[in-house]
Design a protein around this nucleic acid. Structure first.
Length: 352
DNA sequence: AATACGTGGGA
DNA sequence: TTCCCAAGTAT
């Protein structure tokens, strides 16, 4: 017997230490024949794309309480789903979530396809998510490779090629370890290992089931892997947001276009966000006051400084853009974070 | 192939 | 403060 990582050691560790997650069937129950609900597996996997378990939990509970089935989600109004997703980020996921739910409900009789290939034909499901759903929900022996798996493979095999160039090699390594028996538990086990022991910084090698097999640990380089090609610096952009409040307390809001940044989300009308001075673009004629404080926010690929203009407008004022939302219908939690920052700064100067 | 696309927490 | 990081996908 060789000294490489043994999937059986990992499964034994998982059976004893699997995290208790609201979308997961515990390993003991799974062995007893319990199957996870593919709808819940799909929903959790989409929410978990580039997102931490800690951030996802509350959203998952809220979504499943509101919409217990894919048919229920498919029937939900777009604006409600986008509002419930607000704050979780990567809003194309929410738009694709709805598209996918509607395809599954209308074209697949409410049942998710069971193969990676068929799953990948659905909106918002790529190579990772397709493999993950097939493995976790249907126990297909798919190779599931996310950021955790990449890190674990890079360390166990001491692969020093930087990402993303190392990806094919890491996938081959993951494939070689994927077992025919319990592939769904195996996939979740590698990810749990990466999330709780083989962490990006300061991995807890002393309690790792693959301690004896880890080439990077033997070489003492585990904390330096995986290597990554340096990222580009984020440019600084500037913009103006306009917060208008009508005499009856209604707020002037707009739903952003479906494409691009914050697509489909509710927000304050404003200028474009540019690297030089923004061009003013007030959405309604008013006596605008500069708040004197800007909202700062960092997106994936740029930093933003957003100047805030506020105004009270008369009841009969006609907006050029956006629509007035009655105070009773406005939920700040429906706003993406940058827009909520603007609201939090502006609200005190627009009291009624 | 390279880029666009969010957010919050930790060091 | 600043940077890095987290269960990626679409184009």
């Amino acid at each position: 017997m060789g000294d490489g990582p043994d999937p059986a050691d990992l499964l034994a560790w998982y059976d004893a230490h699997a995290r208790d997650l609201p979308w997961r069937v515990a390993p003991a129950a799974r062995l007893a024949g319990a199957r996870p609900d593919p709808y819940r597996v799909w929903l959790s996997e989409v929410m978990l794309q580039q997102t931490t378990v800690a951030a996802v939990r509350a959203y998952f509970e809220r979504f499943t309480a509101l919409w217990p089935t894919v048919e229920a989600l498919a029937a939900a109004p777009d604006a409600q789903v986008m509002g419930e997703w607000a704050g979780l980020g990567y809003y194309a996921r929410a738009r694709n979530l709805l598209k996918c739910a509607r395809v599954v409900a209308e074209d697949h009789g409410g049942r998710f396809p069971e193969t990676r290939e068929a799953l990948m034909a659905l909106p918002g499901i790529g190579p990772y998510t397709g493999a993950a759903i097939a493995a976790i929900a249907f126990d297909a022996p798919e190779v599931v490779v996310d950021g955790n798996v990449e890190r674990v493979m890079a360390r166990v095999h001491d692969i020093r090629t930087p990402l993303p160039a190392a990806k094919p090699e890491l996938v081959r390594a993951a494939a070689a370890l994927t077992p025919e028996r319990r592939p769904g538990c195996h996939a979740q086990a590698v990810m749990d290992l990466g999330a709780t022991i083989c962490t990006p910084r300061a991995p807890a090698c002393g309690i790792c089931p693959w301690w004896g097999a880890c080439a990077a640990r033997k070489a003492g380089v585990q904390a330096e892997l995986p290597r990554k090609t340096p990222k580009k610096p984020k440019p600084l952009r500037f913009g103006i947001a306009y917060v208008a409040r009508r005499a009856d307390g209604a707020w002037l809001l707009e739903t952003r276009p479906d494409k691009g940044l914050l697509g489909g989300m509710l927000g304050w009308p404003g200028s474009d966000w540019t690297e030089s001075a923004p061009i003013p673009a007030p959405p309604i004629e008013a006596d605008w006051t500069d708040l004197g404080e800007e909202a700062r926010h960092t997106f994936t690929h740029f930093h933003l400084r957003l100047a805030i203009k506020v105004a009270h407008v008369p009841q009969d004022a006609a907006p050029l853009r956006g629509a007035f939302t009655p105070a009773t219908a406005f939920r700040p939690s429906d706003l993406p974070t940058v827009m909520r920052k603007v609201f939090d700064l502006a609200r005190s100067s627009l009291r009624h």
